[in-house]
Simulated assay, not measured.
Amino acid sequence: MIINSLKNFRNNNTFNKLASRIYNCYGVRLTNKGINNKVYFQGAYILKTKIEIVGSNNSIKIGNLSDLRNCSILIIGNGHDLSIGEKCQINNTNISFTQTSGKIKIGDKTTIGGAKIYSGEGKFIELGEDCMLSSNIEIRTTDSHSIISLENNKRTNKASNIYIGNHVWLGNSCRIWKGAYIGNNSVIGFGATVSKNIEPNSLAVGTPASVKKKSITWTRELIND
């Protein structure tokens, strides 16, 4: 197809921005209901993706040579910030914000096979560089509803930030909840739920996730014995 052949211009900086602009004319459906919203994706390649903003003073930046396919980005509220780095590959992923002043940052060269990433109550999600996320993954800073203590009538399930370091592998069906902190080079196994600290270079599995191995790392390459 013509739009796919446009990717051949990627290695030429002079033509890449023009090629991506033509490509994105077919691939992006943008709705902007607000003022002072900034959306920048020049140099990225986006296909079958919907971007909807309902609010003002929001920012979306998708880095050079990144690919988004079959994704949706929904911003409701004011002052949110979405930053996707360069050379990312993101498929079948929903990114959303509510309330005000949320932040989601995805580092360079990160790949996502399918995820729901949700920032609410003004909290941030930081996903480092060269991370590998499988499919059916959910990352949330908030429960979206309140649990109230009968003893003092106060809310007990407050929202919290999420930090995922560089070169982290999240296996299929992981759940990363508010307050999670995952160190660099770690692996989170199939179906695990993380809501606490996982040290760098750790393998964690289970619900709730617990560390089963330390002093490990991983590579995208399949190495034979």
Rank of each mutant, 00 (worst) to 15 (best):
A180F: 08
T110F: 00
K109T: 06
K109I: 00
K213G: 05
N70W: 05
K103W: 00
D143W: 03
N32G: 03
I84T: 09
K33E: 14
I3Q: 13
I216W: 11
F41Q: 03
S146Y: 10
I223P: 01
P208L: 12
V211L: 05
R220G: 15
C71N: 04
G34C: 03
G183E: 11
G114E: 06
G114N: 07
N157V: 15
L133P: 00
L30A: 04
I51W: 04
I104R: 01
K109C: 12
W169E: 05
K87L: 12
L203D: 07
F15R: 05
M1Y: 07
S202E: 04
K213H: 12
V205S: 08
E86G: 01
N58F: 02
I22M: 12
S210G: 04
K103G: 01
N157F: 09
S5M: 10
S5Q: 13
L68Q: 08
K212Y: 08
T217C: 10
I51Q: 04
R220W: 00
I216Q: 13
I125S: 01
N94L: 13
Y45N: 04
S20P: 02
K33F: 13
K38A: 07
V194P: 05
K38Y: 10
H167I: 02
G122S: 10
E151L: 10
W218Y: 08
G102A: 08
N197R: 15
A44S: 15
F190S: 01
N78G: 06
S20R: 09
V194D: 07
C71I: 00
I51H: 04
K123M: 14
L18A: 15
